[in-house]
Amino acid sequence: MRPAAATAVLGLALAVGAPTAWAVTRPEVAAGPPVQRVLERTDVAPQAPPMAPTSQAPPPGAATLPPVTVRDAAPSDAPVAPPPVRLDLPGLGVTAPVDPVGIAGDGQMELPEDVDRVGWYRHGPQPGADGNAVLAGHVDDREQGPGALFPVRDAEPGDEVTVTDAAGATTRWRVVSRELVQKQVLPLDEIFARGGPPRLVVITCGGPFLPEFSSYRDNVVVVAEPVVDGAP
């Protein structure tokens, strides 16, 4: 009699408790302020003073013409800054080689086929330059399994990120926001912005998997800002 009641109670507790515990402990879909709000902030440039425009228009009616700067117009080789070659998120155990990538045939950002590698959008800013440096990789692949950025969905504000360039120089960043955003409403113009304070945006896939499309519904977007303390 007693053991039977205990079994029933225990069973119910298990049936209710397991999913509750899972729901409570699963990672939140977002951490920190919303990605879009972070990306629209322009007042957080700790090391980049606002750039003075090359020339300022005088008020209408003023006679003074703007100062003029002149340069040689002969074709020249554009200076090429060393591209990023490695991404590290030590807190999540992520370390991945980085390849410069462009645009895929379908107009989306190109990603390395190898899920262990991460792509840097080479048409946008370098990590550390004004604007958003975008790094992205496959979260997984049917044949290759989980990708290098699989753990990024657990990134938390404050996590440290390091990017190393081809010359061996590093830029250090701190995560300020992580969010799961549906691909249809991903703020692409804000994410790929080429102006504004320097930021690092790390993107992979996440959310529900849609087998009929062989893809995920959402993108995991992590935004990081430069570490300014200058500590080694």
Binding site: H123, G207, P208
Partner: peptide, 24 residues
């Protein structure tokens, strides 16, 4: 410049977060 039309990123469903995991 224009932004890319999106960011792809996964084909296996290993990171699927739509339902309860099997052990639960």
């Amino acid at each position: 410049h224009s932004a890319p039309s999106g960011v792809p990123g996964g084909s296996a469903g290993l990171a699927d977060e739509s339902g309860m995991p099997l052990p639960v």
